[in-house]
């Protein structure tokens, strides 16, 4: 199996409403995939299914050849999937250091030294070494988002799922996050934080076409088209969507 992630016929029904239907998708090792589409197309739902937060009604989900469909949510993180949800997720009453430590200590609860080292590296990675004692509720929105990224990396995942990681974040910080993603995916396997794959949802076209190797377009719960940024622009539905959102 060369694919990092593979999903087949993934569907979700809630109260008789079909949110997702028959989605097929592969993610090759080292690939960055962008997911776009109009509001309510099922983009966030797709990520939540991949993260284990929701359970699919139909279809299968394999990570590194391992079937994940029936596993409890917490095992997704243990098996190498990290997830950044749409809303900032750090624990608001804890400090930056406690948040990082909480994310980093899973699996090595009592080896304080290695946890401490990892926390330091993460704080350095996101440039927050001076803010480790600050309580999260006092951080800016952009800082919370950046902390989200660091916490997601703490479990040293193979695959990162990010739901609008730069939405609502100021231009500079958003650029930093995008650059960080690029570095993590391009970096050597032996560097401390390395990503084998990234799937992200984004409204901002610029970010999608800049960051993604391949782009999927969701509409009404279906994956309408998938391909390289260049090829996908030509597709009818996508072209229409792009022209309607020219000034977003």
């Amino acid at each position: 199996m060369s694919d990092l992630l593979s999903i087949r016929g993934l569907g979700l029904k809630i109260d008789g409403k079909e949110i997702l239907r028959g989605v097929d998708m592969e993610l090759a090792s080292g690939e960055i995939k962008g997911v776009m589409g109009p509001n309510g197309a099922g983009k966030s739902t797709l990520l939540r299914l991949l993260a284990g937060e929701l359970q699919p009604t139909t279809g299968e989900l394999t990570l590194c050849g391992q079937d994940m469909s029936e596993r409890p949510e917490r095992e997704f993180s243990r098996d190498g999937i990290s997830y950044i949800s749409q809303r900032p997720g750090p624990f608001r009453d804890l400090t930056v250091e406690e948040n990082l430590r909480g994310a980093a200590q899973r699996g090595s609860l009592f080896s304080r030294k290695s946890v401490r080292g990892k926390v330091d590296r993460l704080a350095k990675l996101i440039d927050m070494e001076r803010k480790t004692d600050v309580v999260v509720s006092e951080l800016s929105y952009g800082e919370m988002r950046t902390l989200d990224v660091a916490m997601a990396l703490a479990s040293e995942p193979l695959l990162l799922l990010a739901d609008e990681p730069t939405a609502g974040v100021s231009g500079g910080v958003a650029g930093d996050i995008v650059d960080l993603f690029k570095d993590l995916c391009e970096s050597n396997r032996n560097t401390p934080f390395h990503l084998d794959g990234l799937i992200f949802v984004e409204h901002d076209k610029g970010t999608v076409f800049n960051l993604a190797d391949r782009v999927g377009f969701l509409h009404d719960g279906r994956l309408v088209v998938e391909g390289t940024p260049e090829s996908i622009r030509q597709h009818g539905v996508v072209a229409q969507y792009l022209s309607e959102h020219e000034f977003d």
Partner: peptide
């Protein structure tokens, strides 16, 4: 620390594994 994380957001702690 895990206790306090659960108090803050149980769902999120579960998501962290």
């Amino acid at each position: 620390l895990v206790f306090r994380m659960i108090k803050g957001d149980k769902k999120r702690a579960e998501l962290l594994g």
